[in-house]
Design a protein around this nucleic acid. Structure first.
Lengths: 324, 324
DNA sequence: CTGAAAGCGCTTACAG
DNA sequence: CTGAAAGCGCTTACAG
């Protein structure tokens, strides 16, 4: 059996109260007692049980992270930075992959509540998660509105969409098409599309958007796009994986990049920069997004609801590669 | 304040014992009482506290996962599948990114022990983690030997290295060089190198291996390789990111692929298949690795130490693209 | 079919 | 400087 605080007390010849005080460096304890206790802990290989501590303190230092899929380099990188910042602040991270499925999100949220997490970071497309928003549960959303009360952190999607579209126009593209993820309402990522449309209109072009969704795969949508718009010479994809798939498809169709078709992606993860360094893309500051999100969440956890910014949009950066 | 079981009891007009029994569906309870209790839970929005439960049962259903870096698509995908299987079995996952740093691994392991995880899955290069192996802590390693007693699950690295090297030979490469990750001893991944060397010797070639490490970056090593071996016409890289960097560098140097240089990677993640579908690579069965690892871990957790296979190597698959 | 009591491993006011 | 007691939110033998 694992030793507990009473075992330590017995070995050290003191009370468990004293052991606890040594453990927490709390109150006055003689040096001699401290040493005895430390030696006893060492001797019987004692580690405090954080479950019991958390139960008493009603604080677990646990944070839940709900993302669609850690396989995706954007989310994998986001999870990495979130975990990094959490650890630096003494928080531990419970990972949940929702696959954007609302039923899974609800189950995960209930699991997190039962596990008494101090807060939740949510990257989700489903506004329905709202139903679960307990006023007492600190929560922060990344890149997606959940409600008026839940703070959102993301990149400056409008600026990103603008930069991407303007670049394609500057590069003389005549027929620029946008490919977006699921077109949910009130998702800041849809500002990428809005910016695309605004810029297009400003230059008196007709905006056209294709949508990739769980029902219509990347490949399928891109193929359709090329069939329906053989004249396309510029594509702004709302993430790098879609951009990569566009490159692949245009290679299959013998459309050369960047001469016949120019492509701009979105995200600019390290993985994509390594694997496909030629891709022109809009880079999100994933590390800062993680930092700001956790800063906000920890303020909520500490009960400082006043200083909280409800919407934070961090600057994006255009990375020009050889696909434009 | 969050309601507890006594609050539910009060509202339902029963004892907390009864509420607990309803919660756990244990013993005989009249239908009428059950209903009263469920209604009360609903009414005051009660969720059981899993901390208290776990404290009593001495089982948390928590599993710790220590990986180097969830940003890397291989680990991101592995984390995804591990989380998926854990959830399907009722386990929850605590994510730890060690960056292969031993000091971090030790801190994480202590954190996991304090949090009373039921078991730990470790993907690490540091054998030193052994020092922490408590006989009572169920542990399983992925792709890396930790000790004679810790089960390892991985892909059939020797077969993978063999397939890769033989393909390059079959494709008429004269000067085949291998690029490996950190050359630690007793890492099953080093069988990839062993196979490369064996095949090379079999064909009376001189095996040459370059090593990428935290000190020497991919780009640096690859650049050196091209400088020192301009004759190279075949490269077997021990992961796809290295292979991608080789492709980039050879493009910079005007070496065309596959005519002047053929490249084979290793891992075959979905991300790489999407972004760089032309890459020839050895695909690891990441989903099966996750499944087998957790199967073994849960056996250890259940105390069945007899049926446990200490080494499991799952079959790999050659995916031929246009880089060979 | 239901309840009072003890205990999981801690911590902290309260006494001394 | 140190200890006995109560309690965090549960569960489960034991009684009835």
């Amino acid at each position: 059996m694992k030793p507990n605080i009473h075992d330590v007390a017995k070995v050290a010849g003191v009370s468990s109260t004293t052991v606890s005080r040594v453990l927490n460096d709390r109150g006055y304890i003689s040096e001699k007692t401290k040493e005895k206790v430390y030696k006893a802990m060492e001797e019987i290989n004692y580690f405090p049980n954080d479950l019991a501590r958390s139960l008493f303190h009603k604080k677990t230092n646990l944070i839940g992270l709900i993302i669609p899929d850690s396989s995706n380099p954007f989310f994998g990188e986001l999870a990495f930075h979130i975990e990094r910042v959490c650890t630096s602040l003494g928080y531990k991270l419970l990972l949940c992959n929702s696959l954007n499925r609302m039923d899974k999100e609800e189950k995960y949220l209930e699991m997190l509540i039962r596990n008494q997490v101090d807060g939740v970071i949510v990257v989700t497309y489903n506004r329905g998660i709202l139903n679960y928003h307990k006023p007492n549960l600190p929560i922060v959303a990344i890149d997606h509105y959940l409600s008026k009360k839940i703070p959102v952190v993301g990149s400056d999607n409008y600026e990103g969409g603008k930069k991407a579209t303007e670049l394609l126009i500057k590069k003389q593209c005549e027929h620029i098409i946008h490919i977006n993820g699921p077109l949910e309402l009130e998702t800041p990522a849809n500002f990428r599309r809005k910016a695309y449309e605004d810029v297009m209109k400003e230059y008196e072009r007709l905006p056209i958007t294709y949508e990739v969704s769980p029902q219509k795969s990347r490949q399928e949508v891109i193929s359709k796009l090329f069939d329906e718009h053989p004249e396309v010479d510029g594509i702004f994809a709302s993430d790098d994986l879609i951009a990569a798939a566009v490159i692949t498809e245009s290679r299959i169709r013998g459309k050369s990049i960047p001469t016949q078709l120019k492509v701009v992606g979105y995200d600019g993860t390290d993985t994509v920069k390594t694997i496909l360094p030629e891709l022109t893309t809009i880079q999100q500051p994933i590390d800062s997004i993680a930092e700001v999100a956790i800063d906000i969440l920890s303020k909520e956890i500490e009960g400082e609801f006043d200083n909280i910014q409800l919407e934070t949009y961090l600057p994006v950066k255009l990375l020009e590669g050889r696909t434009t």
